[in-house]
Simulated scan of single mutants.
Amino acid sequence: MAAAANNGGQRPFVDLVSVVPQPLPEMSVAFRLLKSKDGEIFFQFSKEEVQRSAEPFRYSIVLKFLRNRPSLDAIRAFIHKRWNLDGIPVVSNMRHPRNVFIRMVSEEDCMKALSREVNDIDGIPYRPFHWTPDFKEEEEPSIVPMWIVLPGLPPNYYHESFLKILTAPIGRFIRSDNSTRCVTRTDGARICVEMDAAKKPLPYFWIGMPGLGTSRKQEIIYETLPAFYSKCKIQGHNLKTCRAGKKSARSNVWVRQQEPIVEEPTDKINNPVIEDTEVETNKATEENRVLVDPILLVEVLEPEKDQEENLEILDLAKDMNPGSIEGNWIARTD
């Protein structure tokens, strides 16, 4: 009641949300005329106006489900049972059917939701993102919550004020786990930070002046370091595994389409057999040529030999019976 009296009788916006969804608080903005550039109409607001308009949503997050998301009622019931929040968040759908907008009532609830170690609802995994006025549904911001371990960190540095300082070069401190808060595990501090996955992770830092014997070189272990490709702004892959980058690269190359080549069945045409047949045919031709030529010579020579023998016989016959033999020979030759 006192808080309401101090605010002029109006209850804080977070109290209204924790009970039942209420309209946004009034915000006065000076009216302005539209502007135009190159035929395009636009409106322009100051940075301070945008920040004031986003004040009711500074503890809001976006859940991007990797598959078809559960119903809003199922998400509300799961959050109420499992997330252990102090207030009742407002859960609403977004333009993309897999995205859900969750408006928390406090920073502590927002940090609990972002730093959950198991990110799924009813078995459907999701990626959590802290909402800002620059958030775009078609893109995924590179700022993501991530658990890190500072192995061997002395327990006197487990205080939250120290951890916020030590993790400042890595990202924004969200919270430490229960073992670190209660110092029940002294082999290292485990912390959830909100860091930029597009940047190269810091491998270590020094506590004290580097190189001095009293100084400590502190290693950083990243439990879940998601891949992020800054060109397509999607988590879970990089340049090598980006399908969109490969697809766009292929679309810029024009290739002339070739006519399909129809191959005949191999049982009808067998090239090796044809080659062997030609070789065998050539070999047979050469062999025949060698074998046939002597036969032709013999056939040519044999008639000459027969004629000589016949002439000899004819001469003998003339000697024995010149008349009859000559007439018979002449008749046979005709």
Rank of each mutant, 00 (worst) to 15 (best):
E40T: 03
I207D: 04
S142L: 07
F228D: 07
S215E: 13
S215M: 14
I61A: 05
A77V: 06
E280C: 07
I325H: 13
L66A: 04
D319H: 07
V262W: 14
I79G: 04
K35G: 00
M195I: 13
S115V: 12
V292W: 13
N7F: 07
H130D: 02
R116P: 02
I88F: 02
L63H: 06
K37Q: 05
M320C: 14
L202S: 08
E40F: 04
R127K: 03
F228N: 08
P226D: 06
T167D: 11
L153T: 05
I295N: 01
V279Q: 14
L163A: 05
V17Y: 02
G188T: 10
I148A: 05
N99Q: 11
K200W: 11
E140K: 09
F13V: 14
A168R: 15
P265M: 10
W83N: 08
R58P: 03
W329E: 11
T266L: 07
L291I: 08
P141N: 04
L72Q: 07
V90R: 08
E49S: 11
S161R: 02
S46M: 06
K268P: 02
N7G: 05
K305D: 06
Q257P: 05
N99F: 12
K81G: 00
K217N: 14
R127D: 04
D196T: 15
H96D: 15
D319I: 13
K37S: 05
A168C: 14
F173K: 02
A197T: 08
E48V: 06
D334F: 10
N252H: 15
Q51R: 06
F13M: 09
A197H: 03
F101L: 05
R11A: 01
Y157P: 03
N99V: 02
R256Y: 10
W206L: 07
A77R: 09
S106R: 08
F228E: 04
V292F: 14
I143P: 00
W83Q: 04
S230C: 05
L212N: 02
I207K: 00
F13A: 09
E40G: 00
D73A: 08
I148R: 00
Y59D: 15
E48F: 03
H80Q: 15
S60E: 06
F205S: 06
E309T: 13
R98C: 09
V62E: 03
L202F: 08
K318C: 12
V290M: 00
G152L: 12
K246V: 12
M146H: 03
V62Q: 02
I148V: 12
S106K: 07
D177H: 06
S142E: 10
F42Y: 15
F42V: 10
D276F: 04
H96S: 11
A197F: 01
N271R: 14
Q257S: 10
V298Y: 01
A189K: 01
R243A: 12
R82W: 07
I75M: 07
Y222I: 10
Q257L: 06
I174E: 07
